[in-house]
């Protein structure tokens, strides 16, 4: 199954991402994002735990991607492998992830594109015959 495809958007990057389940969808979104940023596959010598909560899975997906973008630029952590657990607690959706990656300075190394953030605009997570799909717009 293809992980993502690029759709047209006048100013920014718009992609449709697929996953066989929600966890897999979240991981595919992160891989797609870093495909745009860095072409080389990262080493996985550092592990980082991430905990996030939101009112719904759409918000949680944006929080997750922006968490990875900001830790890349602020703390130079380039992620490459994702172990994700999603759960419900009351009216909250929760993400627990262990991300393996490496120390990568985006200012010393050449990166392909500057992505400012994942946006909420038009974001919808849909159930498909093969699992889940989401359309996301990244501000560039």
């Amino acid at each position: 199954m293809k992980k993502y495809e690029i759709l047209d958007h006048t100013a920014d990057i718009r992609i449709k991402v697929y996953g066989k389940n929600l966890e897999n969808l979240f991981a595919s979104c992160a891989s797609a994002l870093f495909d745009f940023l860095v072409k080389c596959p990262p080493k996985k010598n550092i592990k980082k735990e991430i905990y996030l909560e939101a009112e719904n899975y759409e918000d949680l997906l944006v929080f997750w991607l922006n968490e990875l973008i900001s830790s890349f630029y602020a703390y130079h952590f380039l992620p490459g492998q994702y172990k994700i657990k999603l759960s419900d607690s009351g009216n909250k959706k929760i993400l627990n992830a262990v991300v393996a990656g490496t120390d990568f300075n985006p200012y010393d190394n050449k990166i392909d594109k500057e992505i400012k953030a994942a946006t909420y605009h038009g974001l919808k997570i849909e159930q498909t015959d093969n699992g889940y799909a989401a359309e996301i717009i990244f501000d560039v």
């Binding site: 929080f63 922006n66 953030a117 909420y120």
Partner: peptide, 24 residues
């Protein structure tokens, strides 16, 4: 980062203040 931080904080404001907008 400022925009992202505060959008995240304001995502919860829609329900808190009973605001209805068609795009999050």
């Amino acid at each position: 980062q400022v925009c992202d931080d505060h959008l995240r904080a304001m995502a919860g404001c829609l329900s808190k203040y009973g605001i209805d907008v068609p795009d999050r």
